[in-house]
Structure formats: C-alpha cells, structure tokens
Nucleic acid binder design. Structure first.
Length: 732
DNA sequence: ATCACAATACTTTTT
DNA sequence: GTATTGTGAT
C-alpha cells in the first residue's frame, strides 16, 4: 500500500510490525520521525484504529504539533477526523491529572510551577525552617528534590544518611506542604503524581489502558524513571507499545533521563521486537565518519555502522578565531560567503553552542552585520521579568492560593504594600487558616482584627484596594474573553506607565507585554487555564519559527531532532565543550561527547567547527585550549589550520605573556597603584592591592583594616590617597 | 515606602 | 555580565 511504498525494508518492517512491543533503535537521520508518523497513519488507515485510541509522546510540544500535521497529511483530511492524542509527557500528565483531580491534594485549577517559581518557593521553605540561605543554597535543595521526584522517591523514603540528606528530607517535606498550600504542582510533580495515581487506583489505570491501546514514544532514550514507570503503568497486556530511540543521542541525564531505559525495556519486555535503522538519509559520508569517530570512543555501547548513499561530500572545516568577537565575525562572514557562492542559503544554516551565554557575542555580530537571525530559546521571552509579572497576575486570578505569584506582583507596580505589610498579611492569613490571596479577596472593606492591629490605615487601604481589583479581575475572567481580562489588568495596574520609563529598555519591556497579549489572543477560545498551561509547558524549541529565511542560533541541546544543510558549531574549547563541570564525572563526560555527536549529525552537507584562543568568561578574558574532542576527528576528514601548536597558537601565547605597559589610547591613566594607603569614607583606611583600568573607570582592590578585601570602582568610591609608597605600575 | 547604587553570588544543558 | 539582595538617602 501507498503508506509503505516510500520506505526502505527496515522502516517498512517497523511501520507494519504486528501490535505488541516494538523497540526501534535508530541512528541519526534514519527517518525515525517518518517511521513514527507512518506507523500512526498505518494503524488508522490499515488496522482501523480510532485515532482517539492512540497516544503519541514526543519530546517537545513543537514535535507533537508537527507530528500531528504529518499524520494528517498522510491520511488526508477526509472522513470524520478526530485528533490523535499527541503530546509530551508533561502535557499528557497535566491533562490526565486535571481529569482525575479529586484524587489529588490540589484542585483541578492547580497551576504549574516552573523553575523560578520552584526557587522562590524553596527560598520561603529555607526561611521557614530557619536555615541560613548563605550556608544552604535553596537551589541545591531544589535540585536534590527534583532528582528525587524523577526517581520516584517519596519524602518518607528519602534517605538521611548525611547531614545534607537530612536537610533535604526536611525541606522536601515542607516544600511539598507549601506546594499544596499554593494549589500548585511543579514539573516533576506532574509525572510523580500521575505515577502515584495510576499505581494506587487500579480503576483509573484500567480506564486509560482501555482508552489508549496504542502508545508510541519518540526520543525514548531521554525518558526518566518517572516517565518509564508511567509508561509501564499505562501499558497493559493488550497495549501496543512502540518506542523509538537512539542511546547515542541521550543528552538529558542531568535532568534524570536514563538511556538504560532502553535496556530496561528489553528486559521488561523480552518478547519485544527490536529493529535497527542504520542507513542515514541526511548527511554525507564524511560527516557520518566524523560523527562515528567521536562516538565510537565511548565504551560499552552497541556500535552502529552509519552509512549513506549520498556520497563523500565536503571535508569538515576547522577554524581558530582570536576571541569571541572574532569567532562571531567569522560565523557571519562564512554564512555570507556560503550564500554568495550559492552553497547554502542563510536559512539553511544553524549556529550551535554549548551554553546560552555564548549567543550574546553571536547576536552582536549579526546585528552589526545587519543580518537577520532566529534565536531558539523560550527563556529569553518567558523568562523576562515583565512577562513573568503579567503571567503571575493571570495565575493569581485563576488560582488565588498561588502565593508565589501573589508575592511577586503584590507591589508591582508599587502600590504602597511594603515588606511590613506583606509580613502582617502572611501572619494574619496563617492565623485565619486562609491563603494570603484568599484573605485579600475576602477583605472588601471589612478588616479582620489580625490585620487591623499591626497595620496603619494607609497599608490597610492599599490592601483593600488590591483585593477589590483582584475580585473584579476574577469576575472578568469568568465573563469575558482572555484578552479583555489582560487589558483590564493592564489598565487597572498602570503597568504600561510603570514599564515605560523613557528608556529604550522600557519600550522593549512594554513591547514584550504586548507580545504576550498577542499570544493570549490565540487562546481566546481555549481560555485562561489552557493559556497558563501553555506558557508553563512551552519549550525552547517551540519558539523556533519556520518561516524566516535566516540562520538559526541554538544550543546543542535544542538542536536535537533538527537538521540543517550547514552546521556551524562554535566554542570548541576545552571547558566549554566538554564543559568544565563535567570533567570529574565520566558519565557526564560521555554525555558531553554525545552532545557533540548530536551536533555533528544535524548536518546534511557541511560542518564548520570554530574555536578561539581567548574567551570571555566571568567577564574576564581567559586563555582557552582546543576541545579534546577535536583530537578525535581524523585529519583526513578535516580542512583548515590545525589546532594546538600551529602558528596561531604561538601568536596567542605571545599575546598572553607580553608585558604591555602602555595603556590603550584614550583610556585614563591609573590613579591608584599597589601599595598606596587610601582612606574610604565608610571602610576607613586600607591598602591598595591591585588596580585595573576599565573602560573609562578604574577598578581598585583594597585591603581595608575594618572589612578586609573589597573591590571598588574608583570614581564611585570617593577614595582619598593618604600616601603613595607604590613601587611601580600595577598590571594584572 | 521607594529609589539608587553597590556588593554579592552565580550561569551547562530544559520539560 | 546579569540577577538578586543589601544599604543608605530621601
């Protein structure tokens, strides 16, 4: 039949495999997405499976959307079409949990806490338990609890084998209490609670087993323990389970993903059919050879012989730049050149990097060259303060028990509710056994004694006014479309005037608010709850628009599942890729290697690798050495000046060690020198340890008798020179 | 209560 | 280089 005609024998075998358990181990570019979409279409068209009975789980929402479109394309839009359930584990869990909310400690209107909400909550926990946040960074607890949840470890089961673990145990318990009080679940809870629900309520489990007779999972190597357990619970004897993955592309271990789920699957389902896809339809052979040279150094894996019929192709190009700016400039020029020579249009080029911070230099170069670009990264938008603020308003309207959101916006823009007032409010709320949000809502002119006592008239009036607004918004949420609610909030709070402070930045902030409003317009029919869920579960990849004819800038992680004609990987320095934080952990180093492998295998025709001698890290220039992964690439596959001890390296060393006494022209001469005795109006007397001339100021490090070492900006500090015993010019 | 500036601490990757 | 917290002045 038509569906199978365009496939190779292995793909065909997978697509038409009998219902049961199927594990497809697919190399990069082997058409695994095609296999999945064809399998779904095959089930519907050939086996007569109702689309409603199919659950397909992808890694990102974008992948889910695309898969839906592709399946629709294969089936044609005729007939009585009902949408297939497609989604990510988190979106799926959120949906099922809302449907079964009576079994949860939170209401069906729960909100989803993202990482920054989790952090805010954890700060409250640490404060509540009277721990010193300096000594016990809330973030460490957050992380420990997150991995515990991913491993399905309950609070009671958390080991207390060390002092730290004991603290985690305590914070974990309190953190969960706080979440419930906020009527909120965090990312990890979504999975954890669903597993619990399915485990403890056989009727519910049975219901979904009957509903979803076919479950398909993409990117199976990046599932974590909770997800795997969820899968096992959802799949009964009768379920057709079809998972696709590539252990070599597992890059989310740090988030709890465990590629050993692939082995676990084979152990748990010994009958499962295993199908291998090795033929590559994406890359040229040189690219595959390079990728294999990198990945084959990993021990204990099943080797894949990747091959293609696309021919040898171009060698990989290696370039060493001087610094980040130079690196970025090279990237821009290369894209220009490729376009000029007709090799690749800019829209077919991807620029990849290990850390988000690296995008800055690149963006600057693109802006300077007046070249448009697409930046993948939801953080950039949804992480912005003003965007988060507006979302917090909406969340509070939807769920007044959300204290994290309440505290976030209670005084933004300033409305006369300061720290004292907040404290009194929280105390009163806990005495009255209400959430702070509910208390504010209940005020309506009548003040309980708990607030009347400690607070002055002005503060009471401010709280009351806010309560009235919040009530009005809740009414608007019930009766009016989402955008009307947003407009009402914006008008009532005067957010625009607050944001637009006359600076360019202020304009941009307001523009971001409008952009969020525009996104909300698309959710007018779906409503507030769906909108909030969307913004909570949105992924980086989701922000990649596919229309523009511009190069794509993205992290290597975000590149998973994508392909480009030309891939430029920047920052191939040791410490960046592999990242320094992975050095002492072999498993983490293996993951860095797989990450590089993922980047390489995104390319269809060309790979360009770039690194630089000096890199700005921590705001300071540091020398960099070439990535150790570069040494694994056979030189036969490479083109361009060789790394390490080439002429360039010698030049760099020279630059690094040369004594340069003459300050750059235009820079002010240093006023302070090591050894000087100086007087500071607050810190008193001290001795200058070091002085560095910055852009148009001087950064002085001074040892004070009173407070020890301080680093100050000379122009701000108001230093008085007592005497000048300095020996000579100080240079770092 | 609010602002402005200064010091501090932290940046791997993200659903 | 950035986000958040802390401090002193108004």
């Amino acid at each position: 039949m038509d569906l199978l005609k365009s496939l190779n024998p292995q793909q065909r075998q997978a697509v038409s495999a009998p219902s049961g358990q199927v594990l497809v181990l697919a190399g990069p570019g082997s058409g695994k997405t095609r296999v999945l979409t064809h399998r779904i279409a095959f089930l519907v068209a050939e086996r007569g499976v109702p689309p409603r009975g199919i659950m397909a789980v992808t890694f990102t929402n974008k992948a889910a959307r695309e898969m839906g479109q592709r399946v629709r394309g294969l089936l044609g839009n005729t007939g009585d079409w009902r949408p297939i359930s497609l989604g990510t584990f988190h979106a799926l869990a959120a949906r099922l949990l809302r449907a079964e909310a009576e079994h949860l400690p939170v209401g069906r209107d729960f909100v989803i806490f993202d990482e920054s909400d989790q952090q805010a909550l954890m700060r409250q926990v640490v404060k509540d338990l009277q721990l010193d946040p300096k000594q016990h960074p809330p973030n460490r607890f957050r992380r420990a609890i997150s991995s515990a949840k991913n491993e399905l470890v309950e609070v009671e089961d958390y080991p207390s084998t060390s002092y730290f673990d004991e603290l985690v145990r305590r914070t974990y318990a309190r953190y969960q209490q706080f979440l419930v009080a906020n009527n909120a679940l965090d990312f990890d809870d979504l999975l954890f609670w669903l597993v619990r629900l399915l485990r403890e309520h056989p009727p519910i489990r049975q219901k979904y087993r009957e509903r979803f007779r076919h479950i398909l999972v993409d990117e199976f190597q990046d599932t974590n323990s909770a997800q795997y357990n969820m899968l096992r619970l959802l799949a009964g004897e009768e379920t057709d389970l079809f998972v696709v993955g590539d252990p070599d592309q597992s890059i989310y271990r740090w988030r709890g993903a465990d590629y050993r789920n692939v082995q676990r699957f084979q152990r748990d389902y010994p009958e499962a059919q295993v199908i291998l896809l090795e033929e590559n339809y994406r890359s040229t052979q040189r690219i595959l050879d390079a990728a294999m040279a990198v990945i084959d150094r990993l021990p204990g894996r099943r080797r894949k012989a990747l091959f293609t019929r696309r021919g040898a192709g171009h060698p990989l190009l290696l370039h060493e730049a001087y610094d980040e700016a130079d690196e970025a400039e090279f990237v821009v020029q290369t894209i220009r050149r490729l376009a000029r020579e007709g090799q690749a249009s800019p829209g077919q080029v991807a620029v990849m990097y290990r850390t988000n911070a690296q995008s800055r230099a690149l963006e600057e170069a693109f802006l300077r060259a007046n070249m448009p670009y697409r930046l993948v990264g939801a953080q950039r938008f949804y992480g912005r303060r003003e965007v988060k603020d507006l979302i917090a308003y909406l969340r509070l309207v939807h769920n007044p028990r959300d204290q994290v959101s309440l505290l976030r916006i209670l005084n933004v823009p300033p409305r006369g509710i300061g720290a004292k007032t907040v404290e009194a409010l929280l105390n009163a709320a806990s005495t009255l056994h209400l959430s702070a949000g509910e208390l504010v809502l209940a005020l309506q002119g009548g003040m309980p004694a708990e607030l009347n006592g400690p607070l002055g008239r002005r503060a009471l009036r401010a709280l009351d006014a806010f309560g009235r607004q919040l009530n009005a918004w809740r009414e608007a949420a019930r009766s009016q479309p989402l955008v009307a609610l947003i407009d009402r909030i914006l008008a009532d709070t005067g957010l625009r005037a607050y944001l637009e402070d006359g600076t360019e930045e202020g304009q941009e902030r307001w523009a971001n608010v409008l952009e969020l409003r525009r996104v909300a317009e698309e959710f007018s029919e779906l409503g507030l709850e769906t909108f909030l869920e969307h913004v909570a579960l949105i992924s980086d990849q989701d922000t990649l628009s596919d229309q523009q004819e511009a190069p794509t800038l993205l992290t290597l992680h975000a590149a998973k599942g994508l392909e480009f004609q030309v891939v430029i990987i920047t920052g191939l320095d040791d410490g960046l890729l592999p990242h320094q934080r992975s050095f002492d952990d072999p498993e983490a180093m293996a993951e860095e290697r797989r990450l590089f492998y993922v980047g390489l295998t995104r390319a269809m025709d060309r790979i360009i690798l770039v690194r630089c001698f000096r890199r700005r890290l921590f705001g300071r220039d540091e020398p960099a050495t070439p990535s150790r992964f570069l040494h694994d690439l056979p030189s036969a596959l490479l083109e361009g000046e060789l790394l390490s001890l080439g002429a360039g390296q010698a030049r760099a060393m020279d630059t690094l060690t040369r004594w340069d006494a003459t300050p750059a022209s235009g820079a002010p001469a240093a006023r302070f020198r090591a050894g000087m005795r100086v007087l500071h109006r607050k810190f008193g007397e001290g001795i200058v340890m070091e002085s560095r001339v910055e852009q148009d100021d001087e950064e002085v490090t001074i040892a004070f008798q009173s407070v020890g070492l301080k680093r100050l900006a000379a122009s701000m500090a108001g230093l008085e020179i007592l005497d000048d015993h300095a020996g000579g010019p100080t240079e770092s």
